[in-house]
């Protein structure tokens, strides 16, 4: 019989696997935590871009032979 499957040994193998999974989850959360804090810090340091007012366009049509401009806004 496989030694690893014996009840006395299998429980320790299961413990090692569970600890390895937890170590992976913990490392992932630690890294994600650090990265998200850094991202937030950078965003707070950068000034938010100013939202420019809506652009208005004026069109003036002018014919040299008529003198006065037409359609002036």
């Amino acid at each position: 019989m496989n030694v690893a499957l014996e009840a006395g040994v299998a429980v320790y193998i299961a413990l090692i696997v569970a600890l390895a999974v937890w170590a992976g989850v913990f490392a992932y959360l630690w890294r994600l935590d650090a990265q998200s804090r850094e991202l937030q810090r950078r965003l707070e340091q950068q000034p938010a871009p100013e939202i420019s007012p809506p652009v208005s366009v004026s069109v003036r049509q002018q014919r040299p032979d008529l003198g006065e401009p037409r359609g002036a806004e």
Partner: peptide, 27 residues
């Protein structure tokens, strides 16, 4: 950056859960 206290708390959580796992299987 996270404050030192927060980092220590997270490390303690890592150790705490490792202890829980150990207790779950062998204690």
């Amino acid at each position: 950056m996270a404050s030192t206290r927060t980092r220590v708390a997270h490390l303690l959580l890592g150790l705490w859960m490792s202890g829980v796992l150990a207790a779950m299987f062998v204690v």
